[in-house]
Design a protein around this nucleic acid. Structure first.
Lengths: 141, 141
DNA sequence: GTATCTGCAAAACATTTGCAATTCT
DNA sequence: AGAATTGCAAATGTTTTGCAGATAC
């Protein structure tokens, strides 16, 4: 296990939000924190059932929603069909290639992300989605 | 009819993209261009069936997808469940209130929307989504 | 012992698809 | 006539829900 040494940190993060750090929840949260791509609920489930054969999809959905509601992970709705999840909650954008479908992280300077806005709504979350053709697919789009 | 005088313009815009401007397509496109909110496919269908009782949901979906593919309208995926559509294709962001669910337009200076990025992907579309509590709901979130 | 978490199966929901009928040129 | 558009019904795929059993505090 790659990030076993972070388990206690993750447990604390859940507890600080008032979430009981059950075995399943902790595993799902750890998985999202350790992985560098943006898995769907189905992918999280498929990946973790190899370690935890009894893990149900319902629990995966329940837990992911719980984590999103508590701002511990982000839900990425750049796709129409299915939601992707991102354990990296420091502000950044996402780019989806229209050809290969891959989702890339786009690092954006935090100072660039307020757009000089003066609006009266209270903003709790910003998502920036870009689409197009990635470097690899650009030649033949 | 509010924007009858724009019909010829809309017809031209469809034809310039190689889309046959059928009656249904023209009506759907006109509706999206004239409305100031961000209807879902279902809302477009519900609204237009009062004028065009024979209009099917399949045609609404077909047409909306065709318009999106040809960059004549935008698909807004700020919601998980359903896609909203926006006939206003000049760059701007969207804000969704987590309490009342309303989606507001956020006008962003176009110069603010490149984020000083130097990335090697070819970007064809940028969507900026913000969430939080709108002015009206801020008092009791 | 009571509340919470989990899992199964079924339901809900938006969207897509296959195909036949209609319409347009 | 021929090609494109349309509509119905069924299928698809993701996510949610109801409820019973298991687990934890």
């Amino acid at each position: 296990m790659i990030s076993d040494n972070n388990i206690n940190k993750y447990r604390d993060e859940l507890q600080n939000k008032g979430i009981q750090p059950s075995f399943h929840r902790l595993k799902i949260y750890e998985y999202l924190k350790s992985v560098k791509n943006h898995p769907t609920a189905d992918e999280v489930h498929r990946e973790l059932t190899s370690q935890i054969p009894t893990l149900s999809k319902t629990t995966v959905y329940n837990t992911l929603n719980l984590l999103v509601e508590n701002s511990l992970i982000f839900a990425i709705t750049i796709d129409n069909g299915e939601v992707h999840f991102d354990g990296d909650i420091k502000p950044h954008g996402h780019f989806k290639c229209l050809k290969c479908g891959k989702i890339y992280d786009i690092f954006i300077d935090e100072g660039e992300m307020n757009f000089g806005l003066k609006i009266s709504h209270e903003i709790t979350e910003i998502q920036i989605y870009m689409k197009g053709y990635c470097e690899d697919c650009k030649k033949s789009p």
